[in-house]
Amino acid sequence: MFIVSDIYTTAPSEFKTELQEKTYHTLNDLHIPFERVDTDEAITMEDCVQIDKKLDMKMVKTLFLCNRQQTAFYLFITVGDKPFKSKEFSNALGVARVSFAPADLMEKMLGTKIGAATVFSAMLDKDNAVQIVFDKDITHEEWYGCSDGTTTGYMKIKTAQIIHDFLPYVKHMPAIVEV
């Protein structure tokens, strides 16, 4: 059985990764409220269903993508149950066909492992090597559900605060596409 904790509105007492620690410190510095839960390790979108129910929101799907040469990188944030179609994504951005970036690059560039990709990785991307891309459908959601940089911590934040407060603070202006 997949375990989901009670809801908390404070940071964990201990951090599992540098990214997780930066995430909570930055949200605190920006006065961005959140609700969070601790869970068993969640890897698939199916694991997120119980998290969604507990936090009363829909988890986003965050994909780390790159071109064939691994010179252009994208963090694509879309609706959790929407299938990803590389051709539609590439056409919407006007870029060469993309695929999933390798796990080692994900850990190196985003500070996360598979299953924990998160918009908060933008804090580690000081050179703006990764373009943040939102599916337009996400921008219409009141709540933004995502990983805190681990596969065992998930949170709920106002979508507008991610787009209008957090991303400008970390100097990443997202592209918004319709796919």
Rank of each mutant, 00 (worst) to 15 (best):
L27W: 11
T78N: 09
A96T: 11
L93H: 03
E46P: 04
T62E: 05
V49T: 12
G80N: 14
Q69C: 01
K53V: 10
Q70C: 01
A42C: 15
K87Q: 06
F76G: 00
S90N: 07
K85D: 00
L30K: 13
V37C: 03
H31L: 03
F100V: 07
T39M: 02
M57K: 10
A103H: 09
F34Y: 15
F64R: 08
G94M: 00
K58M: 10
N91S: 05
C48V: 15
K85A: 00
K58W: 11
Y74T: 03
M57L: 14
V37D: 04
I77Q: 06
Q70Y: 05
E41N: 13
F34D: 05
A72V: 11
V95K: 00
I32D: 03
G94Q: 00
L65V: 11
Y74L: 01
P102E: 07
L63P: 02
D56N: 10
R36V: 04
I51G: 04
F84W: 07
D56T: 09
D52W: 14
A103Q: 09
L63S: 01
N67K: 02
K87W: 00
F34R: 12
K61P: 01
M45W: 13
S86R: 10
D47E: 13
T44L: 03
V98R: 03
T39A: 02
T44R: 07
D47P: 13
V49P: 02
F64A: 06
D81S: 10
T71A: 02
R97D: 08
A92F: 00
F34I: 11
I51K: 09
M45L: 12
N91P: 01
N28F: 13
K85Y: 02
F100A: 04
A72N: 14
Q70S: 04
K58N: 15
R36M: 08
R68C: 01
Y74E: 01
Q50W: 12
T78V: 08
L93C: 04
F84G: 04
T39V: 03
K54V: 07
E41D: 10
D56K: 12
L55Y: 05
T44E: 03
K82Y: 07
V95N: 00
T39L: 00
R36D: 02
V49D: 07
E41P: 10
D29E: 15
N28Q: 15
